[in-house]
């Protein structure tokens, strides 16, 4: 028993070392900008860089629009599939998985062919059109995570009975979705939203090929031309992602406790 426990700790320590040593090394390297002493100079340079602020702001805004679009598409779709079309679930699950196997570059080339400036729908000819297509592309990339998060949330409640209970009390579809379904899957929606946020903040391919001033291309650009700043940026991006994950964990504690099932 004791030997088993010892080896468990050894395996845990190896795993932790594999994960933490590169992270610690990156933190350490990012603080060596000033010769001879540790400092936060690289972070100051990065955070004070106008391009960082602009690209990060752009990506945050893109993430917010992506989340709104994702919620508007996924919540009603997942709800309707659970309520009325359960036979379609495997098909929809397969479709939502496609962005994981089809590279983002395929979507971008599709965009260029379909919406290029010489096409009948030249959305890419304007900034607004390109931004809109970028957000739509991001929503597609985030679909596997958003759909699964929302679907898992819907699984914890008795969608059909709650819907019928609200209907018989006089509620229409709008009331049912906004006052019964959404509040009960809100934590799941937020989980999907934070995952979407994390994906959008670091996304490179689409933003770069569509020539958008997003955070991903900025990260790549800094990484190719500087020494210490990329390490600082990597740590900042890492902190943002972990911050999102921590928020999911914290918010899940406030989820309404399900009391729909008989004792």
């Amino acid at each position: 028993m004791k030997a088993g426990r010892f080896w468990s700790w050894v395996v845990f320590a190896l795993g932790a070392a594999y994960f933490f040593i590169p992270l610690i090394a990156t933190v350490e390297f990012s603080m060596r900008m000033r010769r001879g002493v540790y400092s936060f100079d690289a972070y100051k340079v990065v955070l004070g860089d106008a391009r960082f602020q602009a690209t990060f702001g752009y990506s945050v805004l893109a993430a917010i629009f992506t989340i709104i679009l994702g919620v508007l598409i996924v919540v009603p779709a997942a709800y309707w599939i659970r309520l009325r079309l359960p036979q379609l679930r495997p098909v929809v699950e397969f479709i939502t998985l496609l962005p994981l196997v089809i590279p983002a570059i395929v979507i971008v080339f599709g965009y260029i062919r379909m919406y290029g400036s010489n096409s009948p729908l030249p959305f890419l000819a304007t900034d607004t059109g390109t931004n809109a297509l970028l957000v739509i592309g991001y929503a597609t990339l985030a679909l596997p995570y958003m759909y699964r998060a929302v679907d898992t949330g819907l699984r914890t409640i008795d969608v059909r009975t709650l819907t019928e209970a609200a209907q018989i009390l006089g509620a229409g579809w709008g009331t049912i979705i906004t006052r019964v379904i959404l509040p009960n899957v809100l934590i799941a929606v937020l989980s999907g939203a934070f995952l979407t946020f994390a994906i959008v903040i670091g996304e490179f391919t689409m933003a770069s090929l569509l020539n958008r001033p997003a955070f991903g291309p900025y990260l790549q650009n800094i990484g190719a031309n500087r020494a210490y700043e990329p390490a600082a940026l990597a740590i900042i991006a890492f902190a943002i992602t972990w911050g999102c994950m921590s928020l999911i964990q914290i918010l899940s504690r406030f989820a309404p406790k399900s009391a729909n099932r008989p004792n």
Binding site: T161, L162, N184, P256, S258, A259, N260, P262
Partner: peptide, 8 residues
């Protein structure tokens, strides 16, 4: 049968 009270 399953009560169907709104949990939130």
């Amino acid at each position: 049968q399953a009560y169907a009270l709104f949990p939130n």
